[in-house]
Amino acid sequence: MLWTVLLALLVILLLQTQLSVCLRELRSGGSSSSVYSPPSSSSSFYNATQQRLPGAIIIGVRKGGTRALLEMLNLHPDVEVAKAEVHYFNVEEHYRRGLAWYRAQMPFTVPGQLTVEKTPGYFAAPQVPARVSDMNPAVRLLLIVRDPAERLISDYTQVLHNRLTRHKPYKPLEELLLHKGHIDPGYKALQRSLYHQHLARWLEVFPREQIHVVDGDALIRDPFPELRKAERFLDLPPRINPSNFYYNTTKGFYCLLSAGHDKCLDESKGRPHAPLSGQALKKLCRYFRKPNKLFFEMVGRSFAWC
């Protein structure tokens, strides 16, 4: 009998406690009950999904195929890419905002995924290699290069297009490239094509094996072999296949296929180059012979450039 009374009292106390909790929730507008708490497994997932600093950066070159390389790497399920060029390390206003700002420009990833960003302006900016190393000395770097004469003409063509879009005049390429009949070494587009000078600064900070050189001309002709090499460099399992690419005869370059959806690069890719006389092109090719040779020695391979 005594045990029955004690048990009844215990039940009454528990009911009173529960009633008090309910009354507190009602007085506070039910805030406690309105907050959804996901299961513990979901909480772990949400905590793991975050913006991370890049484990790999496409550092250049400008007009070398950096956008194509980024979009192709993004076919890999273990890769997430920053959608826009960040210009963190080469723009002082951005760099002063700090790594928290830089991280906030990155995509959300889960553990095991690789974050990649590309800003082709990094390659030729003298201050960038040391800054990248300060962020992460083990970061993997991808450098995509193409024929430096073709790169220069493409560089000029983009600037010309931008100027004409804003209804601003711009000198013909030959006037900028030549001074009194000779190549003008001060022309900025020419300086960006002196790959050996810029790579030398990166090699003062990073070991050669940490920089993977992609053949931009080969990437355009046949993307898959270059992507397979990039996968190996990034320690990614091979997931990109030849079936991820198809040649668009209208555009004149390869487009991408993934999960039944196709994607082509924007209309600026494949834009006709601005004219340059055959004589000026020959002078440009002669000018690049020695710089190209120095670059070939630095990277341990040669390219079929003019």
Rank of each mutant, 00 (worst) to 15 (best):
W202H: 05
L152F: 04
R163Q: 13
Y187M: 10
L173W: 03
R221W: 01
R232G: 01
V205I: 15
Q191E: 12
R228Q: 15
H198S: 00
V159L: 10
R208A: 12
L227Y: 04
Y187T: 05
S193A: 15
L176E: 08
P207I: 04
A189E: 09
H179I: 03
L177Y: 11
L164V: 10
L203C: 00
K171R: 10
E174K: 03
R208L: 12
L227F: 04
E231G: 09
A230T: 14
E209W: 07
T157N: 07
L203D: 02
T165M: 08
R208S: 09
Q191D: 08
G216C: 07
L190E: 05
Q158G: 07
D155L: 09
L203K: 06
A189S: 12
H196L: 00
H179C: 03
D184H: 10
P225H: 04
L164Q: 13
H167L: 01
Y187A: 01
R166E: 11
S193N: 00
V159G: 14
L176A: 12
L203R: 04
I153T: 11
H179K: 12
T165W: 09
P169C: 10
R232Y: 07
S193E: 02
D217C: 00
Y170A: 03
H161T: 15
L203V: 00
A189Q: 13
F206M: 03
H182S: 04
E226V: 05
K168D: 06
K229S: 13
L227N: 03
L152A: 09
L164C: 09
A218G: 07
S193L: 05
A218Q: 14
P207R: 02
Q210M: 08
F233E: 11
Y187I: 07
L176Y: 13
K171D: 11
R228C: 03
K188N: 02
H196F: 10
L219S: 13
T165D: 14
A189H: 09
I153N: 08
S154I: 02
I183K: 02
D217A: 08
H182V: 14
H212T: 01
K229A: 15
Q197F: 15
